[in-house]
């Protein structure tokens, strides 16, 4: 049973950031802007978040409060980077994929450069981790589930679930969500009904940047005690989650569960007796999530439900 608890804990570490970042990207892509720069947003906002954690270490004594402040800061920094993409895509009619590639090159390079200058040589930002919640009151007492999901957890798990619920409500129940979708599907029709397409795309990008930025810090806090300017292809995995989930909240959730499971197996296989006995090469397990992504996309991509105007600069005169 202890293995199940161990795996479920590991699973949450991978599942929450994947879900959150994919949901962030969903805002952007549903409004019509391809967001391949997730990797960049994650690295960039994670750097500012961890620097802030370091800085606030002696100032804010309460670990949870400190983490929340830094998550907010990461989100704001995520917005800043995403705005570079948004302005280029919305105002300057740029090729969105090329802009995203530029940002994906920029963020890791700048972060290594900046942190090395800041710390005089080392690119690792150390984090003092005192965020673990031993047991959630009441819920932790539930027999098996309590042990699995409400003991030794991070507050990020609950924030992540909350973000999912809010996103679900926004897209299913609110006018705002429907209008974002309209901008991504048929912006000309949306404009004719009095929706300001460019404004909605900006707002969607800002939300996307915030959520993806928060997801960046969520990724690093549970799994490591230092941040070395890389999130290990997580932004791209999150993007695949979105594609595999066909740009819909419920499917994205399922896709994230699926990917997080494969990632969990990839990194915890040595602790699972059955898999450790197979003696397959390390490379096999490490590349497993990526191979599974490819297989999954091969099966589902034939008839995809991508937003129809995703990646197309908005031209008022076009019909």
């Amino acid at each position: 049973m202890s293995i199940v608890y161990f795996i479920s804990r590991y699973f949450m570490y991978f599942f929450i950031p994947l879900l959150v970042v994919a949901l962030g990207a969903m805002f952007s892509e549903r409004s019509g802007i391809i967001h391949i720069a997730l990797e960049a947003v994650m690295v960039w906002s994670c750097m500012w978040g961890t620097l802030c954690l370091q800085w606030l270490n002696d100032i804010v004594a309460n670990g949870q409060l400190r983490l929340i402040i830094c998550l907010l800061l990461s989100g704001v920094m995520g917005i800043l980077l995403t705005l570079l993409l948004a302005v280029a895509a919305i105002r300057l009619n740029a090729n969105q994929s090329i802009v995203a590639i530029a940002l994906n090159t920029f963020a890791p390079a700048f972060c290594i450069f900046y942190v090395r200058v800041l710390q005089g040589g080392s690119e690792h930002i150390r984090i003092y981790n005192d965020f673990l919640i031993d047991e959630v009151p009441i819920l932790g007492k539930i027999p098996i589930l309590g042990e699995m999901f409400f003991k030794n957890v991070y507050i990020t798990n609950f924030i992540g679930i909350a973000i999912f619920i809010i996103t679900y409500i926004i897209f299913k129940k609110t006018r705002f969500g429907l209008r974002i979708s309209a901008c991504g599907e048929n912006p000309q029709a949306a404009e004719s009904l009095g929706i300001n397409v460019q404004k909605y795309r900006y707002v969607a990008s800002i939300v996307a940047g915030f959520i993806a930025g928060v997801g960046g810090l969520m990724y690093i806090v549970p799994i490591s005690t230092y941040f070395s300017q890389t999130v290990g292809g997580y932004g791209f995995l999150a993007m695949s989650v979105l594609y595999f989930g066909q740009w819909r909240c419920g499917s994205v959730l399922l896709a994230a569960i699926f990917f997080a499971l494969s990632k969990t197996i990839a990194s915890a296989y040595s602790a699972i007796p059955f898999l450790a006995n197979l003696a397959l090469p390390d490379a096999f397990y490490k590349s497993l999530p990526f191979i599974i992504t490819l297989v999954a996309l091969t099966i589902t991509s034939k008839h995809d439900h991508a937003p129809k105007s995703c990646g197309v600069p908005y031209d008022k005169g076009m019909r």
């Binding site: 570079l84 280029a88 300057l92 009619n93 740029a94 090729n95 969105q96 090329i98 802009v99 590639i101 530029a102 940002l103 090159t105 920029f106 890791p108 390079a109 700048f110 290594i112 450069f113 090395r116 200058v117």
Partner: peptide
């Protein structure tokens, strides 16, 4: 001069960024 060579990557990315809206 105590700088990292990653500055080259930063320049690269800025070039790509600006090249992306050269049609505009």
């Amino acid at each position: 001069y105590g700088f990292q060579k990653e500055i080259v990557d930063v320049i690269t990315s800025v070039i790509v960024y600006f090249a992306a809206f050269s049609p505009f």
